[in-house]
Simulated scan of single mutants.
Amino acid sequence: MSAPAQYHLQWRGQRFGPWDLATIREALSSGRIHSLYQIHVDEKWQPLRDFLENLHPSSDPVQVAAKQNETRLRTEYEAKLQDLQEKLEQAQSIPMPGRPPPIPEHLLRKPLFVAPPVEPTPPQLPTYHLEIPAASARTSGLAIASFVLSLLFFIPIVNLISWILSIIFGHIALVKIRNNPLLGGRGLAMAGLAITYGIIMIIIMSAVFMELFKHF
């Protein structure tokens, strides 16, 4: 009966063995080694996990134990690493003499300068100035007639008709001039009405005074 094969193991520069397969399984089960150890097989180093998988591809209890041990070690390593990171963050948050306090994280993410949005300017279109000659305002004929008729107060009998026509033409001329900005002669119409109303008021007041003086 041949002696069992002997293997050398290595982890971080340290060598172990020679061990046979039973000793390796017992060390894996007890947790003294794990499946990340390097094993020397066929003149080369390879992970112990790969060697065991190739040796027993089926559900080997040693391989299962090795995987469980590897998972446990990895979990412990990650927990220790997380604990070290938390302790480091706590140490950095403690203010030290001569060291400025840490900058809050929300200020680090905030940009120092935000450029205002630039709105696109519309293209400048050429402007053209079209000069339209203003239409010359014409004088209202009714305004002229109202002014001329108001001056006929010195002609007997005719002045009564001229005053009535002057008042009618004057008011019609003012209405038309107000509705048509191109129509002139407002001053003539106002003058004709003022003269006519003034003469009528003078005549009425004169008649009233003469009637009053008869009783004295």
Rank of each mutant, 00 (worst) to 15 (best):
N54K: 10
N54M: 09
N54F: 04
N54Q: 09
L55C: 13
H56P: 00
H56S: 05
H56M: 01
D60H: 00
D60W: 00
P61V: 05
P61R: 02
V62Q: 00
Q63P: 02
Q63I: 09
Q63V: 13
A65S: 10
A65M: 06
A65L: 07
A66G: 02
K67M: 10
Q68E: 14
Q68S: 09
Q68W: 03
E70Q: 02
T71Y: 04
L73S: 02
L73H: 03
R74F: 11
E76D: 08
K80V: 02
K80D: 07
L81D: 14
Q82A: 15
Q82N: 12
L84R: 12
L84N: 14
Q85H: 13
Q85T: 07
K87M: 13
K87I: 14
L88G: 08
L88I: 14
E89W: 01
Q90D: 15
A91N: 04
A91R: 11
Q92R: 09
Q92E: 15
S93C: 02
I94A: 06
I94G: 02
P95M: 07
P95D: 08
P97M: 10
P97D: 12
G98L: 10
G98A: 07
P100C: 04
P100Q: 11
P101S: 13
P102W: 12
P102K: 09
P102M: 14
P104L: 09
E105H: 05
E105L: 09
E105A: 10
H106W: 12
H106I: 10
H106D: 15
L107Q: 14
R109Y: 15
P111R: 15
P111W: 11
L112V: 13
F113S: 07
F113P: 01
A115K: 07
A115P: 01
P117T: 03
P117K: 04
P117W: 02
P117N: 05
V118R: 01
V118Q: 08
V118M: 02
V118E: 12
T121M: 11
Q124Y: 08
Q124S: 12
Q124A: 11
P126S: 14
P126Q: 13
P126L: 15
P126K: 11
Y128W: 08
Y128G: 00
H129W: 05
H129N: 05
L130M: 05
L130N: 01
E131I: 02
I132V: 15
P133C: 01
P133A: 09
A134P: 00
A135S: 09
A135Q: 09
A135M: 09
S136N: 07
S136Y: 09
R138C: 06
R138Q: 11
T139K: 06
T139H: 07
S140L: 07
S140D: 07
A143R: 02
A143T: 08
V148I: 15
V148P: 03
V148Q: 15
L149D: 05
S150M: 04
S150Q: 02
S150F: 00
L151P: 00
L152W: 07
L152A: 14
F154K: 04
F154G: 04
I155A: 05
I155S: 06
P156G: 12
P156I: 12
I157Y: 03
V158I: 12
V158F: 12
N159L: 04
N159V: 02
N159I: 04
L160A: 07
I161P: 00
